[in-house]
Amino acid sequence: MALIQHVSDAYGFPPTSEALEYPNGLLAAGGDLSPERLLAAYRRGIFPWFEAPQPVLWWSPDPRSVLLPANLHVSRSLRKTLRRDEFDLSVDSHFAEVMRQCAASREGQDGTWIDQSMIDAYTQLHTMGYAHSIEVHRDGTLVGGLYGVALGGAFFGESMFSRTADASKVALVALVKLLSGAGFKLIDCQVESEHLNSLGASNLSRLDFESLLAQTVNETLADLRWQLPARCGALI
Rank of each mutant, 00 (worst) to 15 (best):
S162Y: 08
E135S: 13
G157K: 09
L224P: 00
D188I: 00
T16H: 01
G144R: 07
F209Y: 15
L57P: 02
V143E: 04
G25E: 05
V74S: 10
A19V: 09
R44V: 04
Q190H: 08
P53C: 12
G45K: 00
S8P: 13
D115L: 05
D223T: 15
Y11S: 15
R64H: 04
L142Q: 11
G157A: 15
L142K: 12
A174H: 09
M128E: 13
R64F: 06
N197F: 07
G129C: 12
S34Q: 09
A230W: 02
D9T: 11
L39F: 04
A154I: 01
V91A: 09
H6L: 13
G31D: 01
I187M: 11
Y22L: 12
Y122H: 14
D32Y: 00
L228I: 03
I114S: 03
C232G: 05
F47R: 09
P55M: 14
A2V: 02
G108A: 13
E210G: 03
F156Q: 11
C189Y: 09
R225V: 13
F87H: 08
S117G: 08
P14Q: 07
S75V: 03
L235M: 08
L146M: 15
N197V: 12
S180E: 09
E36Q: 15
L224V: 11
H132Y: 06
S133P: 03
S93R: 12
F209R: 07
F95M: 08
P53N: 03
F13N: 08
S159Y: 00
P14W: 03
G45Y: 01
S105L: 06
L213P: 03
P15I: 10
V98D: 07
G45P: 04
V176H: 15
E135I: 01
L125E: 08
N218D: 15
V149F: 03
D85W: 04
A19M: 08
F95D: 07
L33V: 02
E97Q: 13
S65V: 13
